[in-house]
């Protein structure tokens, strides 16, 4: 019997060419990262169970899930609003463990859908991140409108994406994107093209520390 091994592959394994691209040679205006090894579960409250779902989430994560377009960061996961009565729980990949824990917590009060492989996670940062994003994202990302913790479900190049803003260690804006896996090759090319005139630093990181 042959050996069966199960390597994972990134949907960006062709599109993502690690390194410095585009204009200039110094610090890139835009830093683009694929975030690999993610776990992602869509949590949809059942009819009449919004409060119970929030309570259960609070118990599990220590924070209430957002009820408006926001992202809340807890110790073990980030909870991102993704529509009425639903949110995405985003965490480092841990085999089946994360999903199993959620299934246990929300049994009977919320429906879950595992999206760990259904979405591709990206980080966009750098001094020209917003200029590049203005080319493919119709959201107003101004500091006063889309501060740290703001989130949105929006359309990028005619496909759905979740966007939320966090900050890096230096406090600079990081725009987090979740896009459908099958679109990620196409969107990566588009985002990279948008960034080339500002200089692009492309790479990937793992969600698992």
């Amino acid at each position: 019997m042959p050996d069966f091994t199960w390597e994972t592959q990134s949907p960006l394994r062709k599109a993502l060419v690690v390194g410095r691209h585009g204009a200039g040679t110094g610090a890139a205006g835009v830093t683009l990262r694929e975030v690999r090894d993610i776990a992602l579960v869509q949590v949809m409250a059942r009819r009449g169970q919004a409060a119970a779902t929030a309570k259960a989430a609070k118990k599990l994560f220590g924070v209430e899930p957002p009820t408006s377009p926001k992202a809340v960061t807890a110790k073990t996961a980030t909870l991102i609003w993704s529509g009425a009565d639903q949110f995405l729980a985003f965490a480092p990949h841990s085999g089946d463990e994360f999903y199993a824990k959620l299934a246990d917590t929300f049994a009977g009060i919320a429906s879950l859908s595992d999206q760990s492989d259904g979405r591709c996670a990206l980080h966009i940062s750098g001094p020209r991140a917003r200029d590049a994003m203005a080319k493919f994202c119709a959201l107003d990302l101004h500091d006063t409108v889309f501060p740290v913790g703001a989130a949105a479900s929006t359309a990028i190049d005619h496909t759905n994406a979740s966007v939320w803003r966090s900050a890096d260690e230096a406090g600079e804006a990081v725009y987090n994107l979740l896009v459908f896996t099958s679109f990620s090759d196409s969107l990566w090319h588009m985002i990279a093209d948008a960034a080339l005139e500002y200089g692009l630093d492309a790479g990937h990181v793992s969600a698992v520390q």
């Binding site: 009819r47 999206q115 492989d117 259904g118």
Partner: peptide
Amino acid sequence: ELDVQLSSATDQWA
């Protein structure tokens, strides 16, 4: 009035 939740799983599965 129905208790139904929908989500797309197209991209999740190979």
